[in-house]
Design a protein around this nucleic acid. Structure first.
Length: 490
RNA sequence: GGUCCUGUGGCCGAGCGGUUAGGCUGAGCUCUGCAAAAGCUCCUACAGCGGUUCAAAUCCGCUCGGGACCUCCA
């Protein structure tokens, strides 16, 4: 089943056949969160998208080294290349040590990722843990002539770099165009070129997070962190680098420049960018104030939310849109996903008790092929989901006796449904918790037995009362040919 | 202002030159004591105007809407 995998590469703006540098292995780097505040749902979408990609690569049998960093230093508020970073600012606000801020939001981030059933990366390096590597890299860039120091701050010389390498390749832009769009250097600016960005920033007396470097006390620029950490764990050139689309123009463009200047080779073969989550057509972001936190989403405690939504329903909602498309959030869409997800999960339960026949009326192999084709075409999860619903239809039809399935095909169908739904899409059945509760099961057996007796005596008032009262307690009863099923509605 | 993306049925969302996307909603039918669940059927759309082509939602041009990036953001 090792069909060819195609990945949309931002560098070429087209889908390319994926060929890893080392056969059977993939080096994957994704820009992680800056942990100075809670992650909102928009942030989560990127990490969930890459979780899908990571899971599918694993599913195909690749040995994947997935590196996702934690930015815990050096990320400045603006482009001033001066002042405190986000952590110090927040620390002052909350009257905490910067590293308390980092710890608090890192833990929060991990909690959220666990709720969304995202696999942890193989390595999760922190920027503060790799200051030496960053300093070494900056030294190397200076030695090669692409950076200069002024007053304890080191800048990357974009114009010099651009003479030898293309600077704006990721966004398909020329330096001259970029310069036009940039504002004039203000009087206090010490850097030479308008596009030059800081690799190392001199600490002010009040700066809280600072390290000693060859250029004095200071802290690293944001872009150098990812370059240093990715090359440390994945090599000077690795397979896939991902992140949100908002990082493409600046952060990733600068990463390429730094690595290229340092090693004289392209750092990444495939650049992947995930699209944004929008609310009412506008991008969800901290500054726009339209972001809500995963916690608020789960409980429904936000003015934009009509109710709370289970993490898996939200994850499924995201899986129904391609990672390169914007995803617009709405209660209506989320509720639609919630129902579709429940239907898919019910079919999985039904799958366990399916009766086999000597032959099959549906082509399961063909269905399997379609699932792989969808995912091999740049991780097209929406099409995969459509095919899985076809699988659900087959399951229900067989269960109804309207279709048949052979033992071999049933095995294949189980493998397919479980593999794609749980391993690849990373979903899990949240409602099955109750079925493990032996006490509840015993009580339910008694109630259902009473109802059965009432029905036998045609005491429908009683049987309906039992059903309605249980429903009030979120326990739903379904009468089927084989007997009575019950489940807890969320 | 510059760079780029985008406009699909009641809603969400795939497709991107010829073939059913899929989910949700709504209607009908089957099953059923009644429901629910499930299955089947129906509601067949591609912003507008031109052009290319045997053939366009899909390619090209224009017009009108949305949005992103160019300044921190996944």
């Amino acid at each position: 089943m090792q069909e060819e995998l195609f990945i949309y590469n931002t560098l070429s703006r087209s889908k390319e056949k994926f060929t890893p540098i080392h056969k059977g292995m993939v080096g994957l780097y994704v820009c992680g969160p800056t942990v100075y505040s809670d992650v909102h749902l928009g942030n989560c979408r990127t990490f969930i998208s890459f979780d899908l990609i990571y899971r599918y690569l694993l599913h195909l049998g690749f040995k994947v080294r997935y590196v996702r960093n934690i930015t815990d230093a050096g990320h400045l508020e603006g482009d001033r290349d001066e002042g405190d970073d986000k952590f110090a600012k927040k620390a002052k606000l909350e009257q905490l040590e910067p590293m308390e801020i980092v710890q608090k939001y890192t833990v929060g981030f991990h909690d959220v990722m666990r709720e969304f059933n995202a696999l942890p990366p193989s390595i999760e390096p922190t920027a503060t843990g790799h200051i030496c590597e960053q300093i070494e890299m900056i030294k190397s860039i200076i030695e090669k002539g692409y950076a200069y120091e002024i007053n304890g701050t080191v800048y990357f010389d974009v114009e010099k770099y651009n003479k030898e390498f293309p600077y704006g390749q990721l966004t398909n832009r020329k330096l001259e165009e970029l310069l036009e769009g940039t504002r004039e250097l203000s009087g206090q600016d010490e850097k030479r070129g308008r596009l030059d960005f800081a690799l190392w920033i001199k600490a002010k007396p009040e700066t809280l997070m600072k390290w000693l470097s060859p250029w004095g006390w200071g802290f690293p620029g944001w872009h150098i962190e990812c370059s240093a950490m990715s090359s440390k764990y994945l090599g000077d050139t690795f397979d896939i680098h991902g992140g949100g689309m908002d990082l493409q123009a600046t952060h990733h463009t600068n990463e390429i420049a730094q690595s290229q200047a340092c090693n004289h080779k392209a750092p990444v073969n495939y650049w992947m960018h995930t699209n944004m989550l929008t609310v009412n057509g506008v991008r969800m972001s901290k500054s726009a104030g339209n972001g809500f936190l995963p916690g608020e989403l789960f409980t429904g405690s936000h003015p934009l939310l009509e109710k709370g939504y289970q993490p898996m329903a939200v994850r499924f909602f995201m899986m129904q849109t391609h990672y390169r498309s914007t995803l617009d959030f709405s209660n209506e869409a989320l509720q639609a996903s919630e129902k579709g997800y429940a239907r898919l999960m019910n079919s999985i339960k039904t799958l366990e008790n399916l009766k086999t026949s000597s032959s099959s009326t549906s082509n399961i192999k063909e269905l399997q092929k379609k699932c792989y084709e969808a995912m091999n075409d740049d991780f097209n999860a929406p099409i995969l989901v459509a095919n899985l619903f076809e699988g659900a239809r087959i399951i229900n039809s067989v269960n109804d006796g309207k279709e048949t399935i052979s033992a071999d095909d049933l095995g294949l169908l189980k493998k397919l449904m479980h593999g794609f739904i749980f391993d690849v899409l990373g979903l899990k059945d949240e409602n099955s918790l109750a079925s493990n509760d032996k006490v509840l099961e015993g009580v339910m057996d008694i109630i259902l037995d009473l109802r059965k007796e009432a029905k036998a005596k045609k005491d429908f008032a009683m049987s309906d009362k039992l059903r309605d009262e249980l429903a009030k307690n979120r326990i739903m009863i379904k009468d089927t040919k084989e007997g009575v099923n019950w489940s807890i509605e969320q």
